[in-house]
Simulated scan of single mutants.
Amino acid sequence: MDKHKYINLMSKKFERYFDIEFQKEILGLNLDMFAKHYSLNVRTFLTKKDIIDSFESNEYIFIKYYSNLDETKVNEFCNFLKSAAEYYVNPTKNHMSTYINGVVLFDSIDEGVKDVIKRFKNSKTFLFGLRGWFDTRLLAVDLNGQDIICNREGKRVKKVYQITP
């Protein structure tokens, strides 16, 4: 599958819930697609003004294409995801969760890179979970087949990023 077809497929999946931008530069890395979602949930008592509590959830998707995926490019993208987490995660009193989804598209992959992707972990809780948490999901999508390599957190959303007609 062509990278443009895959990105269009993902944008159609996400357009209802995410704000999507194409060809965006973030923290010095040129991305093929960037998507963000913000939701604020509020519990009220009798009227809308009687707020009991509220919490916010965020999700960010970073999609980058590499023709040949090697260990240097994966490490560069992992460092970018760590920097993006520092930049985008804001643990305020209403913060509940933030998910950083890093998706790498590739045509060919070097040996040993799969282990680097599977071992990647970047998550944190704030104030013993009272100020929420963030998790980073790393997925590598083979455009020539159905193979998706992901880290432990990425397994939860693996089906979303599969190539389906």
Rank of each mutant, 00 (worst) to 15 (best):
D2M: 05
K5E: 13
K5R: 12
K5T: 11
K5H: 10
Y6F: 10
I7L: 11
N8M: 12
K12P: 01
K13G: 04
K13L: 08
F14S: 07
E15N: 09
D19W: 07
E21I: 06
F22W: 08
E25C: 02
E25Q: 07
L27A: 05
L29E: 03
F34P: 02
F34K: 06
A35T: 00
K36A: 03
K36S: 11
Y38S: 03
L40G: 01
V42T: 15
F45L: 15
T47H: 06
T47K: 08
K49G: 14
E56A: 13
E59M: 05
E59T: 12
E59L: 06
Y60Q: 00
I61M: 13
I61T: 04
I63R: 07
K64Q: 09
K64N: 09
Y65M: 10
Y65E: 09
L69Y: 00
L69F: 02
D70W: 09
E71A: 14
E71F: 11
F80P: 03
F80C: 06
L81A: 11
K82L: 13
A84G: 02
A84R: 03
A84H: 06
A85E: 12
V89D: 02
N90Y: 09
T92G: 14
K93T: 14
H95V: 01
H95A: 06
M96H: 03
M96D: 01
S97C: 00
T98Y: 08
I100G: 05
I100F: 06
F106I: 09
I109K: 08
D110K: 04
G112N: 11
G112E: 12
K114C: 06
D115T: 02
R119W: 01
F120T: 04
N122K: 08
K124I: 00
T125D: 10
L127T: 03
L127A: 09
F128I: 03
R131D: 01
F134S: 03
F134Y: 15
D135L: 01
R137Y: 05
A140G: 06
G145W: 04
D147M: 11
C150F: 00
R152P: 00
G154P: 02
R156H: 07
K159E: 07
Q162S: 13
I163G: 11
I163C: 10
P165K: 14
